[in-house]
Amino acid sequence: MQRFPILIVGGTGAFGARIAELLARDAAIEVILGGRTRGALDAQARVLSGASGRSTGIAVLDATQVCGDDIAKTGAALVINASGPFQTSDYRLAQAAIAAPCHYIDLADAPEFVTRFPSLDSAARAADVLAVSGASSVPGLSSAVVSQHRAAFSRLERLDIAISPGNAFDPGVATVASVLGGVGQPLRMLDGGAWRTVYGWQGLERVDFGAAGTRWAGYVDVPDLVLFPAHDAGLPTGGPGLGTVRFQAGLEVAAFHLGLWAASWIVRSGLVRSLAPLAPALLRIKRSFAGLGSDRGGMVVSMSGTGVDGERKTLRWLLVARSGHGPYVPALASVALARRLASGLETRRGAHACFGLVGLDAMLAEARHLDIACTLEEKPLLRGAEGAGKT
């Protein structure tokens, strides 16, 4: 049987390694791990090969320097980019994949990177490939949740999305730098029908994550803040539609979260330009307190508006990941889409943001063997402290 070769760039990282693990379970897929350090690639390849009983390839490459010929030499039919951080990345790897030519998927959650990605559409269509950006928790999973439950509303007026990982999750320096880079930075958010400026990790509130607990959360800039209003503007709602779209993230350990909240005021004041350079030091501090908190993470998508019966309606979708399985959640969209490409079921081409591209059921099917559970309730988010409208 000829296997479908998938190159995972950043395949030894926090999310890339989990993507590789999920895809390696499929005998019809050949996993190729890509990255800059041969030693780390060899070690990860041995782990995957031992678990799957099949060989795992490696490709030593630098995502910031790669070209189409480099990708073509790997023999990949699909490139999954889990290298990040996307806030400071360009489209070099995506362009190299298209030039190879092969399909491309990334896990970007940087607003500008994802929303401008369709600029590669003409090149992707000319190469007869599919290129997708944002196949992660946001906007990939969040948009799938809303797409699945949108039919319950005659008019959707408000979206509140929140994510909080368990403290047991050990991110890499790139992931931490991405988070810190947004602390105290201005971002635009649709609130009450008007666009206003808020600041990263401010808007301090308590959010109920079900079995993962109630945690502090604050504003974070994600593609959803742009993509949902733009999509809603094109719908025939028959009246005022989506007026509020909010995204918040929270750290499980209150002292860590409140520390970032306090630091956000220093950045906002202009005394410090960015906290991103502190990523290595702060990651060491976090690791020294690894025993705090738990291995539980959560994600909430709350949808409010007018139901099909004309009455006010709020649906609250909740995902709780236990047993340290939260870091698999950002991998689900890319794995589900990769499997569709490998099977030949996916025939779309061009360059797209991962907004409603992958069905929720297909994503959750990838989590069936994981300790991840989802519920849907007619219940609003539990909020308090600074509350809505705070900066």
Rank of each mutant, 00 (worst) to 15 (best):
R273L: 06
A276P: 03
P277C: 00
L278I: 02
P280Y: 10
P280Q: 08
P280C: 04
A281P: 13
L282Q: 11
L283E: 10
L283R: 13
I285E: 04
K286L: 10
K286P: 12
R287C: 04
R287Y: 07
S288F: 13
S288P: 14
A290W: 15
L292V: 06
G293R: 08
G293K: 09
S294L: 04
R296Y: 00
G297L: 02
G298R: 02
G298A: 03
G298I: 05
M299H: 04
V300Q: 02
V300T: 02
V300N: 00
V300L: 02
M303D: 01
S304L: 06
S304Q: 05
T306L: 14
T306Q: 02
G307C: 08
G307M: 06
V308R: 10
D309F: 10
R312Q: 13
R312D: 08
K313P: 01
L315T: 10
R316F: 02
W317H: 05
L318T: 12
L318R: 02
L319K: 01
L319D: 01
S323Y: 10
G324Y: 01
G324P: 07
G324T: 12
H325N: 03
G326I: 05
G326E: 09
G326F: 08
P327G: 00
V329M: 02
P330E: 01
L332W: 07
L332A: 05
L332R: 11
A333P: 08
A333S: 11
S334D: 09
S334Y: 04
S334H: 02
S334G: 04
L337S: 08
R339N: 14
L341R: 02
S343L: 13
S343Q: 13
S343M: 14
G344F: 08
L345Q: 15
R348K: 15
R348G: 15
R348E: 15
R348T: 15
G350P: 11
A351E: 11
H352R: 04
H352V: 10
A353N: 07
C354L: 06
C354T: 09
C354G: 12
F355C: 10
G359S: 13
D361E: 15
A362G: 13
A362M: 14
M363S: 03
L364N: 13
E366Y: 07
E366T: 11
E366Q: 10
A367V: 10
A367P: 03
H369I: 14
H369L: 14
D371H: 06
C374P: 04
C374V: 13
C374T: 12
C374I: 12
C374S: 11
T375Q: 01
L376H: 01
